[in-house]
Structure formats: structure tokens, C-alpha cells
Design a protein around this nucleic acid. Structure first.
Lengths: 209, 209
DNA sequence: CTCTTACCTGTCCAAAAGTACAATGTACGT
DNA sequence: ACGTACATTGTACTTTTGGACAGGTAAGAG
């Protein structure tokens, strides 16, 4: 697994090198493709000295490269972490994280996990809990859905069309419609838009109005 | 690292055994302490056939044991995942996850990471974004909308139909459509469902894939 | 062996949504 | 006065949705 550090001055910090003796450093995200030929690896993004806007752009580019991206912040904070993860990063830590921790993080993200400071994780959950009060009004009725209906509903909740759902579940578009009709009735929504919103615990026009 | 599965019938699924030949199974969380003497390990909680209430209690007990806890759900869903992680679980996956994936998950949580389905992670972030002071990814593009377009978009975000929007804004349905076409292009969404989701900072099918 | 439930499908139809091409009027800045 | 952006609407057409009506299969309960 390659460890590729993107850092403004093109210099690896000692601790990075200690964690990954074979780590590579590049100056910009655009240099990444030519800096490595490895099929898999981890991209580490040093956001010190970077304006938030630039950091966001870099992160976007980095994520599109396909490797898991870990953002290393000079001063980790909630908002920043939040944006980083939303943008597709799967790790968020301190630039001066200890070598052992860097290795842990690498291990985690290389295997599809997400790594962030424990406090941050709890903070995230706390935040979410405020908008997602456990058993939402939709929840109880969600149990009324059959397993197949639930699958369809979840697809709609992601914005999929009937055709896409049909392909995903390997059934006919007609069947998707059948499930949908049933779902609409059970959840008391009138169309897919309201369903999509309801599935995401967002009040809809008729509900509110 | 010990892999301890808590499952109602006390039987290890084949795939679990395949992933961890030395895995242990117990029937209840209360049996965990006497089932192992290992200093560290991972607790896997099978929540099939468990009432939500019982699952919650079990999870709490499991977490208090001190080992990282991974919840395995029969039908993974946002709310359930949310509750599990809030309660202290650091992993959330499908009961029938493939052996390779189970090993990945174990690796992740053993090293302080959090593991959940990628879609779920995005959902979480979307949820938090509604209360977090963070400028959401959609925001900047929202500025591209004209005042009238914004009004239409907001209505769609609440689940309104074209007719309703037309009445509310006192314009023709045709005009609503005109605004919508423009909105779709500016925000790079393909239909009202994706628009409604985007307006609520929820990643959509094509975005997440 | 029935009855029920979930799941799947078909045809037909009507409403809703979305697009293409075109046009009018208004407001604002140069 | 001229250009540009915005808002508005019209006609016409295609696609998507959703519902009505009518089935067929498979699994499980009684």
C-alpha cells in the first residue's frame, strides 16, 4: 500500500517518514497521478497553510483519484472535519499525529473504515441526534413495509428512478411500481418525492402545511 | 484478537466461521465475561430476531464490556445504524456480510476506526449538516439560482407538485416548469426528486453512485 | 389442503413531469 | 438607446409516474 502525502512544501514530516519509511511526498494534488503507479494506497492531505477554499478544491480532486483520502489539519475542529468527511475524505486527524497513530489510521482507511478523533465522532452523533430523534414519526410505519418494499423505498430515498430500481433489484419496472403503490399507501405519502423526503425524516408540504 | 459473536441461537454462521476460524459464539451478552479471558477483541452483535428495545439494551451492555462492538443487522437502515453508533457501537454491517468484509471490519474497529456502509456514512453527514454550522456543498451553487428559481426549489424541497407551486407563487404551471429546467441544469440534478434531496443536503443516487 | 401474504408480472390508461422552440415584457447598467 | 438577465407564457411532444384491473407463483399458517 502506497502512502502518498500531498504537502505544500513537498517535504515529509519526520513523523510521517517514521510511520511510513517508503512514503512519497508531492507538492500538489495534480502531481499525484504521475507520482505513483501503485494500484492502491492512501492519500494524505496536509491542509496547513491552505485557504479553506483551496483545501476544499484539493480535497475534491484528491477524492476523485479513487484512493481513500485522509485530511491532516493543523488545528482539527468540528466544522472542518465535517466538511472534509462530507467531501469524501475517510479520515481526519492532526498533522502532527504520532507515527503509531498514522499507521492505525492507514490500516483503518485502507480497509474501508472511517477514522476520526473519538471526540469528533461523538460530536457528530450528538449533532445528528438533534435532527434525528430516534423513533421518528416515519419509523413505526417503516416496519409496516415488507423487505422488498423497504429496498425500493431506500432506492427512492437516494433519488433513483423506477428503471434504475428495477435494474438494481433485477425485477420489472412494473413490479417496482407495484411496490411503490403499496409503499405510498402504507406511509401515507402521495408520490416519490414525498417518499424520498419521508425516508430522510424531512417533513413534507402536506405534512407541514 | 478474539472475535466474539453474540447471537440468539448460539450458532456461528458459516461466513463468520470462515472469516474467523477461532471465533466464539455466545447466546447472550451476559455470557460474554465468562466466555473469554482475552484482554482485547471484537464483540459482534447479531440483532436478527431481536426487538429494537432488546437490541438497544444488549448493545448498551456489550459496549460497557469495553471491546469495540459491531452491530450486525438483518436489514441495515439509517435509523438503526444511527442508534447503534450513538449507543457506542463502532461498526454497523449486514448480518450476511462476506467473510472478507468481516475481516476488514474487524481490522478497522480493532484500530480505533469506525466502519459502516459508505451510503450510511453519507447519510449521517447529511443529517448532521442540517444542524451543523457548516456551509454545505450545495450552498455555493444555490447562489447561482435567481430569486424566483430559489422559491420554486424550496417548494420542491418540501414535496410540492408543480400545480401547487404555481398556485403558491401565482404563476402558470408552465412557468414553474421553465424555472425547474433551469434549476436542474444549474444544480446538476436530473429531476425533482434529486432536487428535493439536494436542497436538504442529502446525497443522491448519482452522487453517491 | 386451503387461506393468506408477499412477490412478481402484464396491459391499458391518465396525469405529471420534463424538454424543445419561440416569444413578450420588464428592469438595470453602460 | 442597447445589451443582458430575469420572469413569464404558449404550443407541442416525449418520458415518467402512478393507478386500475387482472392475473400467476411460492411459502407459511392453521
Amino acid at each position: 500500500m502506497e502512502q502518498l502525502f500531498v504537502t505544500a512544501n513537498g517535504q515529509l514530516l519526520e513523523r510521517w517518514n517514521k510511520a511510513f519509511p517508503k512514503a512519497i511526498a508531492v507538492v500538489a494534488v495534480s502531481d499525484v497521478p504521475e507520482a505513483t503507479a501503485a494500484p492502491r494506497g492512501v492519500l494524505w492531505l496536509d491542509t496547513r497553510n491552505l485557504e479553506p477554499v483551496d483545501a476544499a478544491r484539493d480535497l475534491q480532486d484528491a477524492v476523485s483519484f479513487g484512493w481513500p483520502v485522509v485530511v491532516m489539519a493543523a488545528v482539527p475542529n468540528e466544522t472542518d472535519a465535517f466538511q472534509a468527511l462530507t467531501a469524501g475524505a475517510v479520515g481526519y486527524c492532526h498533522v502532527k499525529a504520532a507515527p503509531e497513530q498514522l499507521r492505525e489510521i492507514a490500516l483503518v482507511v485502507e480497509h474501508g473504515g472511517v477514522w476520526m478523533l473519538p471526540e469528533l465522532l461523538q460530536r457528530f452523533l450528538a449533532l445528528s441526534s438533534r435532527v434525528a430523534p430516534a423513533p421518528a414519526p416515519v419509523e413505526p410505519e417503516l416496519n409496516a413495509l415488507t423487505s422488498r418494499e423497504l429496498m425500493v423505498a431506500e432506492q427512492v430515498a437516494k433519488g433513483a428512478t423506477n428503471r434504475e430500481i428495477a435494474e438494481t433489484l433485477d425485477i420489472t419496472e412494473r413490479t417496482v411500481k407495484a411496490h411503490l403503490s403499496s409503499i405510498f399507501e402504507k406511509l401515507a405519502v402521495r408520490d416519490r418525492v414525498q417518499l424520498a423526503l419521508a425516508m430522510n425524516n424531512i417533513p413534507t408540504y402536506t405534512t407541514v402545511n
